[in-house]
Simulated scan of single mutants.
Amino acid sequence: MNARVNDEPASATLTEQAYAVLRDRLVMLEIRPGEPINEERLRTELGVGRTPIREALKRLEQERLVVAFPRRGTFATDVNISDLSHISEVRRTLEPLAAAAAAERATAEDRASLTDLRSRLDTATPRGDNTELLRADVGVHRAIYRCVHNPFLEDTLVSYDNLATRIWCLFLPRLSGMAGHVDEHVPLLTAIVEGDAEKASELSAEHVIGFERAIRALI
Rank of each mutant, 00 (worst) to 15 (best):
T74C: 08
F75P: 02
L117T: 09
A214R: 10
H141K: 11
V182I: 09
E212M: 09
S201N: 07
A3W: 15
D155L: 07
L94Q: 05
M28F: 10
A217L: 14
A200K: 02
T131K: 08
K58D: 15
V193W: 00
T115K: 09
V67M: 06
C147F: 02
H207M: 11
F75R: 01
S201V: 05
L94F: 09
A20Q: 09
T13G: 08
S85E: 15
G73Q: 06
F69A: 10
A108L: 10
E89Q: 13
P36Y: 07
A102M: 03
I167R: 00
E202N: 09
L157K: 00
L188N: 01
D122E: 15
P36R: 09
P70N: 10
D183I: 02
A124H: 13
E104H: 05
Q62P: 02
I209P: 01
T44V: 13
H185L: 06
V186F: 04
R43T: 06
I219C: 10
E132P: 02
L94V: 07
A164N: 03
D78I: 01
R41T: 11
F69Q: 11
G210K: 08
A10S: 13
D24M: 11
A143C: 04
E194I: 04
W168F: 05
N2L: 12
E206C: 10
A108D: 10
A108T: 11
A101P: 00
G180W: 05
V90H: 05
R91V: 01
R54T: 14
R213C: 10
T107W: 05
T44I: 14
F211V: 10
D78T: 04
E194D: 15
I192V: 08
N80V: 03
T74Y: 03
A76D: 00
F69I: 13
T93A: 13
I81L: 12
R92V: 05
D116C: 11
L46E: 08
R111P: 01
L97T: 10
A20I: 09
A191L: 03
R59M: 14
A217H: 13
G34A: 11
T125G: 04
G139P: 00
A102F: 00
S119N: 14
V21W: 11
T190R: 08
D110L: 03
R43M: 14
Q62Y: 05
R142W: 13
G180S: 08
P151W: 09
R213N: 11
